[in-house]
Design a protein around this nucleic acid. Structure first.
Lengths: 227, 227, 227, 227
DNA sequence: AATGAATGAGAATTCATTCAT
DNA sequence: TATGAATGAATTCTCATTCAT
């Protein structure tokens, strides 16, 4: 279920001039700007047209830079996608950790995760978009490069499930990882069909609460539901 | 979340030489063979390498035909993918209807759907593969061409949910379509991560039963679980 | 001004089964039929679409035979064009000779030639078409293969001019061959622009008489025009 | 007599990078160079091998650019031919207008047109070549795209004829447009046969004067020739 | 002889990537 | 750094020709 080997760049002689984000570095902050602008443009265009149907020049145009400029920040189109994914999922994980830490019960946490992945948390929609979108673009990328980070995200969900199981709130006859995958899949599926249809503003929010009920209903240990 | 516009076939000038399957016809069974052979090769190769990373010549080779032969049966590479999807999901729907009709309770039906989509029903793995694989290859395909068929599949699941709700077996505070989407997503997610790792034979089967428990647990109306 | 080397047939192993027309042979006369049918179809389709834009299969369809059948009568698409040209110009020359012989004055003869090439002589339009059309299709064909026959046609015209010059009817300060070429070109040009516009039935006929006047005016020796 | 439908450029998405000729601009004269270089190479190669027998890569090589570069300036091979025609015939018309304006009598003008089309005017041979060559390459081009420009050229000739008729120098019983077509055809025919044989330097010049005599003889009003 | 499905060489075109400015 | 014109490898698709039936 994957794309075999990634296309070899004709000559990877020139590593990204700035692989790391020296963005916050004081001074001009011009360059960090540009890398970010390109990434932002990339999410948007990849989301709309798909990775393969998107030309590098289209990303450049959307970012307001010259085609060649993209290669000053990323080694190849493939690397751009990969960087995009890594950069964003990193932030997603960080954000998730912070959000989750503040909450007491596993139920609350799971609910929050659902909201987060559905892009319902204010100002963080882009983070959500990337997971849902990018995962669909290149299985190889996922398999060969991004899987670890992706699995870390799943792990974060699984931890919450395991926590609930230890507490006795969640049923113990299901594998936390399985739940994590199923939850991710369900969320992804919702986002997908939502995207396939015409986006109704309220709909996604409504879906989120129903989905929470459904998932929590499914995972809640029965002792608790039948007092 | 889509790939812009799909290239329109130059107007089906050359309609598939043998669109119909006179396969079951006794005797030589020469005809229809080739179209089917190409489709089968295509699933396999697309699944392994992804649609975009697959060269038409690779499909041809896998099918044991000349490159040009593919164009006798399909108008373009895009059309090949589309035909693949339509052909298979059609069969999946037919098969699903038959399987489902034989079962009494909505619970049983949902369980069966889960097994079917996970490719656990004997000899029907290919049907399952296509949905899971193809849906990931081209969002445009999905959005612009295959969505109706795909939605028909979701509808089939939703109907079972609605039936359960009418019966009182399933909780009524969730939209059947939402459930259908979530179920599809969950199954798809399982299949994906299963595919991303190294396929353990028993694992998927085990996942299926846990997933059934989880989903049925989530959807079952609480009156029933708490007597 | 030509197309260099003609494309080599992948394997000319199989010479035309019936290169010669055994058409008139009594009996079934089936085969001669077919060759002729193909030739006729070819003129028509080449005329409409041009040699290069015409698929062999289109000629086959127009002729009501299978694609492969064409190769039983002609070695290649190029050969088909060549045969077409040779066959028709041969007939044109024969026809011309007969028509011309019956006429007394060079003037009359020239007039007849004009009518003939413009396709105005009853039932012989096709002969005319071929010269005008085919000459435009492939300069190489013309240069390397058909030129001799084409030149024979020009020669026929030149002879009439020379005859007029000997008689004193035509001016002697121009080369008969030059006249022949110019006359051919003028006729061809008329036919071309006529074809470029929307064919008005009467127009070509009217053109023919004006053209005769013009050409004869140009070539007539002045002693004769100024009494 | 034409090649069916010409393929439409995918919508000029990439307009010629440098459509305009800033060639005359002093300094490096780097720009504009390339488009012109490609056009020049194209005339030469198309003339030698014919449009259909010429590979885009051959034009590229002759122009000393990469294959892809051609597509920066022209949308397709067909468009290249079209641009070539339009560009050149435009110049031919301009040049013709200037030449003609300087001459007093219609006779002189016609003579000049003959010389021009035969490529006898110094340094303007290329202009002449294009008309003669290109017109033969693609009837469709002519019919569907270039006809208007081509007809403008014929109109220019026709005007001179009409002028002569008004003056009484030329006979009035022939349509100026017919004459224009015939003259064009005659010139074209001469050029063709001249090209078919082995180019003798003096021959074309000699032909031109004979042709002038012939044509002027044909068109001159008889009152004038017979005092 | 006739058929037409199959073949596969060949060609136009695209687009990621480079590099001179 | 930034640019974007130029590059040319790679890929889809076409169509003349073959050949098993």
């Amino acid at each position: 279920m994957s794309e075999g080997s990634f296309s070899k760049p004709r000559a990877a002689k020139k590593q990204s001039v700035r692989a790391v984000d020296d963005a916050e570095a004081g001074g001009l902050k011009r360059t960090g700007d540009k890398r970010e602008r390109i990434l932002r443009a990339a999410v948007e265009v990849f989301a709309r047209q798909g990775f393969y149907k998107t030309r590098v020049s289209e990303v450049a145009k959307a970012a307001g830079v010259a085609d060649g400029t993209i290669y000053l920040y990323f080694d190849s189109k493939d690397q751009l996608l990969l960087s995009l994914f890594e950069d964003r999922i990193e932030k997603l994980l960080t954000f998730l950790a912070k959000e989750i830490a503040a909450l007491a019960s596993p139920e609350e946490k799971l609910r929050r995760i659902i909201e987060l992945q559905l892009g319902l948390l204010d100002g963080e929609r882009e983070l959500a978009e990337v997971v849902t979108i990018i995962v669909r673009q290149s299985n190889t990328l996922l398999r060969e490069h991004a899987a670890p980070k992706f699995l870390a995200y799943l792990d974060a969900i699984a931890s919450v499930v395991a926590e609930g199981q230890r507490e006795g709130t969640f049923r113990s006859d299901v594998s936390p990882h399985l739940v994590a995958r199923a939850v991710f899949g369900a969320l992804d599926g919702i986002a997908l069909t939502w995207a396939l249809g015409k986006p109704e503003v309220g709909a996604l929010k409504r879906s989120a609460s129903q989905l929470s009920a459904l998932i929590l209903g499914g995972i809640r240990s029965s002792e608790r539901t039948s007092p």
